[in-house]
Amino acid sequence: MSEATGTARVKRGMAEMLKGGVIMDVVNAEQAKIAEDAGACAVMALERVPADIRAQGGVARMSDPDMIQKIQAAVSIPVMAKVRIGHFVEAQIIESLGVDYIDESEVLTPTDYTNHIDKWNFKVPFVCGATNLGEALRRINEGAAMIRSKGEAGTGDVSNAMTHMRTIGGEIRRLTSLREDELYVAAKELQAPYALVKEVAETGKLPVVLFTAGGIATPADAALMMQMGADGVFIGSGIFKSGNPAQRAAACVKATTFFNDAKVLADVSRGLGDAMVGINVADIPVPHRLAERGW
């Protein structure tokens, strides 16, 4: 029996299994258990949630391997971890821990302001953020097996996530309306490889799973992103920076499955207590915005 590991199909297929689910940021084993019990389809292990990175400042790096392994030991669901943009040695370290997915993330401080990681060199699959279709296709060209639209992480303000989902969706719809001889210029304008542009024009969707992230704080936010065409959602600070994490986590899981059912959404939105206080994206000076990191 010949076996092939680390193929594009098993990397992309792993993301297919996460669809319709919620991936939650957790900083320790207890939070990871709460997330699993609430029905999270995966957890993102990190030392500081984006809201704290924002508040405390400084350089944000990959997490301590000890902390990641404690979380791996605590739950049976997939565990993801973040590395800095372009920091391929952090990625080598995280891969060696047997983490199920790596997030090359703008939430951490970037390492390389020109290149992202060559993700084809790894067996572990990568998810990367994108604000538009060209950025998404550049990441897929580098080997990303899953894309998440970027929002403004750590704010609880879902407006940027909305903008980016509309942009990506709109650019995909535009490609499907072009003549075949117009796709060459479309590829030039998107700054993306022609082969991927042609594939999106033919299928009307990305070649990998598209989640959404950044600023999602309520079940209604999660359902909004699903109605906008996301395959699933990442919730970072929104759960464990709220008044009642276990209940809010379970409510967001239900809202992501029943995103089209206003009655269910009303039921799960009742009595959740305080949502994270949040920051309006418009109040954050442009140099401090995370979504704009990535090239």
């Binding site: 076996e3 092939a4 098993v10 792993m14 049976s76 067996k123």
Partner: peptide, 14 residues
């Protein structure tokens, strides 16, 4: 569950 290992051990085969 997860008998064949973690994601890095995921595979395709005939």
């Amino acid at each position: 569950r997860n008998a064949f290992g973690r994601q890095v051990d995921s595979f395709e085969s005939d």
